[in-house]
């Protein structure tokens, strides 16, 4: 995950013991968006070895997406659903350009390096919560299927979850390390420091913004309230006359947005 999400609020020092479904969905979206960006980078880059590296990275990110989606789809406490289009509407991916199209290879590598390291930090923070989710699986299975065999399957599932999560952590570390190494090869130390700081600040700022849902909601509501009040007076104008019904294939019909 290099388009990562915040693990908590701005002033929260300790992350909650239990990861909320919304956070799991955000993690899945972040992993999915990273997979898409990597896939596009593989398609756009000329260097074949880099393309192969990007494809491998994309495959890892898809696997991580599946990991979080698996948790989400088995969660009894939520009606949240994954929709790949959220990656655009929530700003994980730009609608007009992919990351690789907006920056050069050094900037791309720096962005990955900073954000993968950050992702690793977040995942280490939520590690205990993932263990708890594994325990929930056990409890659910205990309640639903009350026999010893299912207990065994459940513990296997719990083990698998932790094993998969360990893989995910290793991947993030490897991704951060690889992009760091590549960055060292292609750019000067001063430029490297500049880029890394730039993306560190960018990520920090994004996380603050992302975690301030109430403030964003308030700004949004205030603007909408203002515009809605103006629009109420114009309601009669918004009732447009019916579209014509005859001879619809005509120059006149197609020339206007109304």
């Amino acid at each position: 995950m290099f388009k990562n999400v915040s693990s908590g609020g701005l002033f929260k020092k300790n992350v909650s013991q239990r990861v909320k479904p919304k956070q799991i969905l955000d993690f899945a979206l972040a992993e999915f968006s990273s997979a898409i960006e990597m896939l596009q980078a593989a398609k756009l880059v000329d260097d074949e070895r880099l393309a192969i590296g990007f494809i491998e990275h994309a495959l890892d990110e898809y696997r991580h997406t599946d990991f979080f989606l698996n948790i989400l789809s088995n969660s009894a406490n939520t009606h949240l659903r994954f929709d790949p289009r959220f990656s655009l509407s929530l700003g994980f991916i730009r609608t007009d350009k992919f990351l690789f199209e907006t920056c050069d290879i050094s900037q791309f590598a720096a962005f990955i390096s900073v954000n993968e390291a950050n992702a690793l930090k977040i995942f280490l923070q939520i590690r205990p919560s993932i263990q708890l989710i594994g325990q929930d699986y056990l409890n659910d299975l205990d309640t639903i299927i009350e026999d010893e065999r299912e207990h065994m399957i459940a513990s296997t599932q719990t083990d698998n979850i932790m094993l998969n999560f360990q893989h995910l952590l290793n991947d993030e570390q490897r991704h951060a390390h690889l992009s760091d190494k590549h960055l060292m090869k292609i750019s000067k130390p001063s430029y490297r420091i500049y880029l890394k700081n730039k993306y560190r600040f960018g990520t920090w700022f994004r996380h603050i913004w992302a975690s301030q849902t109430k403030i964003r909601w308030l700004i949004d509501l205030s603007i909408s309230f203002l515009v809605i009040n103006i629009l109420i007076f114009f309601r009669p104008i918004l009732k447009l006359p019916q579209s014509p019904k005859k001879n619809l294939i005509s120059q006149k019909i197609g020339k206007y947005m109304l």
Binding site: I228, N229, L231, I232, R235, L238, K239, L240, S243, Y256, M257, L258
Partner: peptide
């Protein structure tokens, strides 16, 4: 589509119950 018509039609409906 005719985007302005589409927009006005749905806004006109929604603004009945702002």
């Amino acid at each position: 589509e005719q985007p302005l018509r589409a927009w006005a039609a749905t806004i006109h409906h929604s603004i009945k119950t702002p």
